[in-house]
Amino acid sequence: MQITRTQSVLAHVTLIVSILVIAFPVFFALITSTHSFQESFSFPPKFHVGSHLLENYRTAWERVNLGRLLFNSTLISVAVSAGKILLSLLAAFAFTYFGDFRGKTTFFILILITHMLPLPIRIVPTFELVEDFGWMNTYYALTIPFFASATGTLLFRQFFLTVPNDLADAARMDGAGPMKFLWKILVPLSKTNMLALFMIEFIYMWNQYLWPLIVTHTDDMRVVQIGLKMLLAGEEQAAEWNVIMAGTILAMLPPLIILLILQGSFVKGFAMRQEK
């Protein structure tokens, strides 16, 4: 399709405006995190880099034990993402390749239904279950309830359906059993989907607030989102936005790093599929 000059200009203007709108809060957070408490409240707001950068970040880090919280969040986000990928791979594999087992459709619908129920609706029964298991204030409580993933199951199932049946037949002729077919053929082919799911689920887990709040009660088991909230309500005085923004920027870093690392292979994965 030929793009006219007007269209090109229009597209660029739209994109630039969108980027400004999206990036401004981040930029403002960054700027605020370099100013002193007083400066952060000045009006008109300051748009230059201040001199309190290290001080603010150190305060945020120390006040709520941010190092530990970042570690916790990273740990549970990685564990949940990996767990979801593993479980949904296996579930999708069963749904796609194991003929017509009894209640296949029922099971599938049940899984889809869980997709339609957001966490807050399930929170009370799940809480009771976790409490009965004696998992309160442990990593189990923070991870295992999230392992099942309708999104992931659906994603992998849809992908498996596009894998030609001949490939499964060829693997059978080549003497590969079902599990070997899964690990040696399907998993490598699903790499792009796995990375996408990992990214989505990592960020989803990273942003969890309510569930970690109710199943943990000691400071060393808290996650980073709770830490931010603690920064906000930590003192009797007015919110120290400079410190909070410093904490926010720190909390943004791990997902950002993951995104940057995975982005390369993610794009490559899509390119590979184009090639086919």
Partner: peptide, 11 residues
């Protein structure tokens, strides 16, 4: 067996 689609493992 040789398949119509060749069924080569793409990866």
């Amino acid at each position: 067996m040789v398949f119509q689609s060749y069924a080569l493992y793409p990866h």
